[in-house]
């Protein structure tokens, strides 16, 4: 069941408070539950924290983990920084693109998957690495990466 964005914001406010300094926490909550921050949520946050909706939107747009456009139920973030690049990240990216038919920052037609590339995720000692819904996967090969992504609901 996908919850109503406003309901998530209300819950976030009772959890964290309604001060402006709570905006990142509330946004993170909405963003991780819905994979993005819909405009209803932005408006509800603006109203509760007494900040203009335009400003909340400008916050959303600043951070690469937030999106104001719908994304897939699962977000795959493949590191594209140098230690991963040297360990074969390019081949992994190509095989993900080939198998799932989407370029980075696109979503599959069935809404199952969004593929993203990201700067270093701090797993360079186990390169190449990616985050799948925040969970780390390391020492990837093209086969291993595709298998992990295939297994997502």
């Amino acid at each position: 069941m996908v919850r109503n964005p406003k309901e998530i914001v209300t819950e976030g406010i009772s959890e964290f408070g309604n001060g402006r300094e709570r905006i990142m926490q509330i946004l993170t909550k909405v963003n991780s539950e819905l994979s993005y921050v819909p405009s209803e949520a932005i408006e509800a946050i603006a109203e509760a924290t007494n900040v203009s909706a335009a400003e909340v939107y400008s916050v959303v747009s600043f951070y690469s983990f937030f999106s104001s456009k719908p994304r897939g139920r699962n977000i795959v973030r493949l590191c594209s920084t140098i230690s991963c690049a040297m360990a074969g990240q390019g081949d992994i990216l190509r095989s993900l693109i080939d198998e799932f038919g989407i370029e980075p920052f696109e979503t599959t037609g069935d809404g199952r998957l969004t593929l993203e590339t990201t700067p270093c995720i701090g797993l360079c000692d186990q390169a190449p690495a990616m985050l799948v819904n925040g969970e780390p996967h390391v020492k990837l090969t093209p086969e291993k990466a595709c298998e992990i992504v295939r297994g997502l609901e």
Partner: peptide, 25 residues
């Protein structure tokens, strides 16, 4: 514990503080 949201510049301390205050970093 408070979360960032994927912005390298937020490691700069005043930008980090802005972010904690609910602003662009």
């Amino acid at each position: 514990i408070r979360p960032g949201a994927g912005a390298y510049v937020c490691g700069e301390e005043t930008s980090l503080i802005e972010s904690l205050e609910g602003k662009r970093g």
